[in-house]
Amino acid sequence: MAYSDKVIDHYENPRNVGTLDKDSGDVGTGLVGAPACGDVMRLQIRVSDAGVIEDAKFKTFGCGSAIASSSLATEWIKGKTLDEAETIKNTQIVEELNLPPVKIHCSVLAEDAIKSAIADFRAKQAARRELEKQD
């Protein structure tokens, strides 16, 4: 199957590959996977006090489209607020990378990863507020 130029570019020069400290209070981690193809994707965000995503990292073991989708996702969410990042839809990724129908699930995975990283960060914040209340 032929990959689009943009997929190849992200695959050969993935942006923001790496790890953030998952135990840090300002980091949210999303870990998602597609059992039908054996892909696993981790996407992490570091969020400022103002609720802006200052940094994003990913690590994906999967096909070129899965790597490109997560690489693009980190590029897009950097500098965005959590609320803005949450509105990113997999269809935008499909369009940008020109993904064929059989690879749409890769973009779904990337959207899931963003959402679950945000949810993880928010859960951490809520837990911390709960602790502060008790003090």
């Binding site: 870990l31 996977g33 039908a36 981790r42």
Partner: peptide, 23 residues
Amino acid sequence: LVGEGNEPRPPASLLMEMMEARE
């Protein structure tokens, strides 16, 4: 039914295990 959309989401423990194994 098997394949995409028909199978349960993999548990977090499995994803963590496989991420670590691949790393």
